[in-house]
């Protein structure tokens, strides 16, 4: 899948992303299962909202965590998440 700075992702249908106070981390819930997303993975998915472009997500994360070069990690995570069906590209 061609992923570039303008790509817009959203959480896939029938998945739900939320913060879990009891576990102190973000999770992705889907039928009969759950993926735990500690730390940076949760921070990335939190910004996947069907509006933000990949470039904006990278920039936002670099503002929130200054000094780190995050682009490579973010792209890799998003590709992986897309491959697993957690997120999908927003059409239009």
């Amino acid at each position: 899948m061609p992923l570039n700075d303008d790509t817009i992702f959203e959480i896939a249908h029938h998945y739900r992303f939320q913060w879990e106070p009891a576990q102190q981390l973000h999770v992705l819930l889907y039928p009969e299962g759950m993926v735990q997303l500690p730390g940076s993975s949760g921070e990335i998915l939190k910004r996947v909202n069907g509006a933000a472009r990949v470039g904006e997500i990278v920039a936002d994360l670099e503002r929130a965590f200054p000094g780190a070069d995050l682009r490579g990690d973010v792209i890799e995570f998003l590709e992986n998440a897309h491959g697993k069906g957690w997120i999908r590209t927003k059409q239009g």
Binding site: H14, P31, E32, G33, M34, V35, Q36, K84, G85
Partner: peptide, 14 residues
């Protein structure tokens, strides 16, 4: 839908 499961789960919570 992925196959059911709790990925990475180590916590002892219900």
């Amino acid at each position: 839908m992925e196959k059911a499961g709790f990925e990475q789960s180590k916590v002892n919570l219900p």
